[in-house]
Design a protein around this nucleic acid. Structure first.
Length: 407
DNA sequence: TCTAAGAGGAACTCATGAGC
DNA sequence: GCTCATGAGTTCCTCTTAGA
């Protein structure tokens, strides 16, 4: 049983003080109390105590288990989930471990988890942005992992409340920064530059780069999907790509996350021709994967980025100006989506070609105004010009009636 | 009931350094 | 110069939930 009441007293200096006190009995039967400045905080604490007693949980006033101890248990459980491949992937475990070890433990590792207050978490989160220069969306991400860690501790009955949840309220509405977009002219320059070849790049690399870029820019494939293509998925004669797999960073061929990811994408003739060109450089491998290194290994995304992508951007004059981010390879997929929408393809078709389960996702993330403001300007000009024509009629009858009455 | 935002999982980008 | 490995940070994508 826990009870809450307001307590007032006068300190030695003669100042009147007030606090909300929660009184309860711990698992040894000893009476305990804890004071809060606000009634709501006291009520929350009392609720957790009550719930704990009702469910038979161990209630301790001064928990001694540290954040480090909880984190080790938490990461151990995560590793077990990773081993059961259906429950957690390699990349998610890696991300979780990275956030916990790099950001949470250095600040809170030695602290008793039950003693942490949301105000401390709030200060720490703000410092991650101000001092460590993390993007707001990343800070929010780190806090999310900390909250999950806390939830784990609650399930294990190490702590009764989640100090991170309260601190996270201030981070609502923080969204990821949109990636920098390609203009039509940029993509044209990029493709022309790739075709010319540059530096001392081998002909094999030039051929590979050309087809990979056009697959992203015109067919909207993700990097992992491109690298996961097998020759049996490429039907040059029928000009269709069967997107069936994704190649992970660990060189594993995985099925798409959802059924929508399985799709057939039309292959433009120009891109089909590039496939024929690339076939001369194909390195046989047991899975029949189209794109491999000369030694038959995976073309890792990081290697592709540093060796091919960035040098191509520089050569094409698309290197970022001071303060600008680099253009991402993934931005080509954004470009493809925008071009499809701009070209008049129904958004449901675009979503299907991109492998999206819902078309609102397509509009939300990929429908960028790629052609710039002048297209909108022209559209409004056409509307105004049509309005000024003497034979112009408004389709709806209601306003027309109103005008007649007035006349 | 509808829609925006959150939660959670996974993929992508980026930096660095070693070996060939 | 290219390839590869590793670690860290950022963004994408879908499903769920809160609240207008």
């Amino acid at each position: 049983m826990a009870s809450t009441h307001k307590r007032t007293w006068t300190n030695k200096a003669g100042t009147k003080k007030a606090a909300f006190e929660v009184r309860y009995f711990d698992e040894t039967g000893a009476q305990r109390s804890k004071s809060f400045d606000r009634k709501r905080e006291a009520d929350d604490f009392a609720f957790h105590i009550q719930t704990g007693i009702r469910e038979g949980r161990r209630i301790t006033a001064r928990g001694t288990i540290t954040v480090l101890q909880v984190a080790e248990e938490f990461l151990g459980a995560a590793e077990a989930r990773r081993r059961d491949r259906r429950r957690m992937g390699e990349s998610h475990l890696r991300g979780t471990t990275s956030m916990v070890r790099n950001h949470i433990l250095p600040s809170f590792g030695t602290r008793a988890i039950s003693h942490l207050k949301w105000t401390e978490v709030d200060r720490w989160a703000r410092a991650l942005g101000a001092e460590k220069k993390l993007a707001p969306s990343t800070v929010k991400r780190v806090m999310h992992f900390f909250k999950v860690l806390f939830d784990f501790a609650i399930r294990r009955q190490y702590v009764s409340g989640n100090a991170v949840q309260e601190a996270m309220k201030d981070w609502r509405g923080v969204r990821v920064d949109p990636v920098r977009q390609f203009a039509i002219e940029d993509v044209r320059t990029l493709i022309e530059t790739a075709a010319l070849g540059f530096t001392n790049a081998h002909k094999r690399n030039i051929a590979m780069l050309r087809v990979v870029i056009q697959l992203a820019a015109f067919c909207g494939l993700r990097y992992g999907e491109i690298m996961g293509l097998r020759w049996e998925d490429v039907d040059v004669a029928a000009r269709v790509l069967h997107v069936r797999h994704n190649l992970t960073a660990w060189d594993e061929l995985k099925d798409p996350k959802t059924r929508a990811g399985l799709r057939d994408v039309p292959l433009p003739q120009a891109v089909a021709n590039l496939f024929v060109d690339w076939q001369r450089h194909y390195v046989a491998n047991d899975r029949g994967l189209v794109f491999r290194t000369p030694s038959g290994k995976q073309i890792a995304a990081n290697g592709f980025h540093g060796t091919h992508w960035k040098p191509l951007l520089v050569r094409a004059g698309l290197a970022p100006k001071a303060g600008e981010p680099w253009l991402h390879f993934h931005a080509l997929r954004h470009f493809a989506a925008s071009m499809m929408i701009d070209g008049g393809l129904p958004v449901t078709d675009v979503a299907s070609l991109l492998g999206h389960a819902k078309f609102d996702m397509t509009l939300q993330v990929y429908a960028h105004p790629i052609a710039g403001g002048h297209r909108r300007h022209e559209a409004l000009e056409r509307m105004t010009a049509a309005f000024s024509q003497p034979d112009f009629r408004i389709v709806s009858h209601e306003p027309a009636k109103a005008l007649e009455t007035k006349a």
